[in-house]
Design a protein around this nucleic acid. Structure first.
Lengths: 341, 341
DNA sequence: TACATTTATGTAATCGATAACATTTTATAT
DNA sequence: ATATAAAATGTTATCGATTACATAAATGTA
């Protein structure tokens, strides 16, 4: 009554064995055309549907993959997940989502929880830089379950990654500001234990140096990726004896906070101060004063992460080779930094 | 070597049977303290971890639930998913995400695919109004698998839903415009075969009528939830013989398009024309000209949807009772409609 | 016709955990 | 010390599908 037709039901109905039914359903060559046809028809009639759970237990492949992100309700991560899902669904995979909220214990808990659920792979963006506990990762590797980092990675032997060239993104952004004539460029940084922020900092610094500007460490301030934090930090910058005339922010949200503070002080953007954010969040384009930002093509990143996973799976037991895909970011020049003409 | 310790391994190690191991691990009372301790220690030593797949096959509960949305990379749906995940993860559930991209075949495909994966329930926002094919839904119900609609629902007997009071949201928004002195209010609608848009239209209409304004059907135009569509439609409105002096849009994106068109014509907001959107997308608050919008508290909606699911699961075989939660929307009044003082 | 092949089907084990039922061991009462 | 109850453990079937191996049926060959 409650659905759930199994191959045994079909077998009984036709007075054959479950093995034969299984073979018929799987296009196994060792079966007569007549029987196959009969089984297929009966299966359809009885609304048979394969129980993937049983298959998974038998085969050791669940066709589920886990995706771990700090949070899902940010355009960046949501877009990555979109890309992953679109790439994997056609191949028969389902995507399980876990959020860590930047909590280390949840990060580890999620990994274990996904392992218990027998996922075929884990794609994740690590949230905690201090996550010294490589144990959970090692466990994955020992079990030969593909682990792939996207965006926020950790250097672990045998683990592939898909990231963007944060250094280049930052370098290009800073260079653009310099080209626009800005001389004293500040940088709203973030926890530099995380590679992405470290590299953005380094790219910024290199651009300053390469172009003969004075590099002033006091113009670099670490803050959190929140609007009000950006505002607070900008207050500090503007109150300096020699305030900056441009700000390259490692986050669109802090860039927005900076804009708010700058406007409150009656300063003009981009005439008096230039602003660039990072991530190309949708709102940067929507603002009347549109914000120049670095696009990370997150959907593409998700797609490629999924592809790298598929490659590893298809590679099977072969040599576990790391693959590191580095995508090129694109500077989206908008009003907040375009001073010419 | 490759991990995967099973209860049989532990049993062999201790010269007992798997059943005893299972009992020890599950705190079954029928076991001696000594054996339990021994098993627990050995399990820890051998890095045992329960295979949820085997458990799922045996128990018929996968502890996976499917969530089907049109797309995940919109703040609204991402926030709902966030709420769902946060509510269900602590209860041991994993959330599987599927996107339909508003395609009917994908919608049906997703349901079947999730069914095969033996999910314990499906939470979804239907994307296609024309989805006459109730077959897939009936299949779910027949199998006694909880199906719960959120936001975009369909009236199906036995199916619970969590929605917001779109009528009220629209009514309040329109009433607010009227209170601000706007006299000729247009409505950017959307496919009214979908209940949410139908109800927003009805709420708008009722507010117009209740407040003695003239209801003019030509001021209601269906469009798609895209910025450029909103712009295009607004063009039509502004070119009318008697153009509107306010626009209540069923989407924040069309509201944004409307603003762009209005500004290009040199009209002032909110002085000449008032604007209200729907959904309270993050950017509405970030804009310099912040947009008044109707908040749908999506994270809360997700949470409650999950709770309704849990209730149905715990209800077990009991009377299948529909539950319809209707959340109250909140009007977020911002600059785009605040004309007084 | 008799024997070798090929083809189709059946049998039974397996994946890992659980649980009803059976059996053994230990504790308690007489 | 013996009967009996209670506690602990073992045996085995089960969830649903797959598959190596065994067997039966069909076909081919001499």
């Amino acid at each position: 009554m409650s659905g759930k037709t199994t191959i045994y039901d079909i077998a009984k109905e036709l007075n054959i064995t479950a093995a034969t039914v299984s073979r018929a359903l799987n296009n196994n060559p060792k079966i007569s055309k007549a029987t196959r046809k009969l089984v297929l028809e009966t299966a359809a009639k009885m609304n048979y549907e394969q129980n993937k759970l049983a298959l998974a237990l038998k085969s050791g492949k669940s066709y589920n993959i886990g995706v771990i992100v700090p949070r899902i309700d940010s355009n960046f991560f949501a877009s990555i997940i979109r890309g992953i899902e679109e790439e994997l669904y056609p191949k028969g995979y389902h995507v399980i989502i876990c959020q860590t909220h930047d909590q280390e214990d949840l990060e580890i808990g999620n990994i274990n929880s996904l392992l218990n659920a027998q996922v075929d792979g884990i794609l994740m963006s690590i949230s905690n830089a201090k996550l010294e506990d490589n144990q959970s990762f090692q466990k994955l590797l020992k079990k030969n379950i593909p682990l792939i980092f996207f965006d926020r990675k950790k250097d672990i032997k045998g683990v592939s990654s898909v990231t963007i060239d944060d250094f280049k993104g930052a370098y290009d952004a800073t260079k653009h500001l310099i080209d626009q004539g800005y001389k004293r460029i500040a940088h709203l940084s973030n926890d530099r234990l995380l590679l992405i922020f470290k590299n953005r900092y380094l790219g910024y610094k290199q651009a300053i140096i390469d172009n003969g500007l004075e590099f002033d460490e006091s113009l670099v301030i670490e803050t959190q990726s929140k609007v009000h934090e950006g505002k607070k930090t900008t207050k500090i910058l503007l109150d300096m004896e020699r305030p900056p005339d441009a700000i390259f922010s490692s986050s669109d949200f802090t860039a927005l906070g900076a804009i708010q503070e700058i406007k409150e002080r009656g300063l003009r953007i981009p005439e008096d101060i230039g602003i660039i954010g990072f991530s190309n969040e949708p709102f940067t384009k929507f603002m009347e004063l549109s914000i120049t930002s670095v696009d990370q093509s997150p959907t593409e990143m998700g797609r490629i992460t999924a592809q790298v996973f598929l490659e590893e799976v298809n590679n099977g037991k072969k040599i576990k080779s790391e693959k590191h895909v580095v995508l090129s970011p694109e500077l989206m020049v908008r009003k907040s930094s375009r001073r010419e003409n």
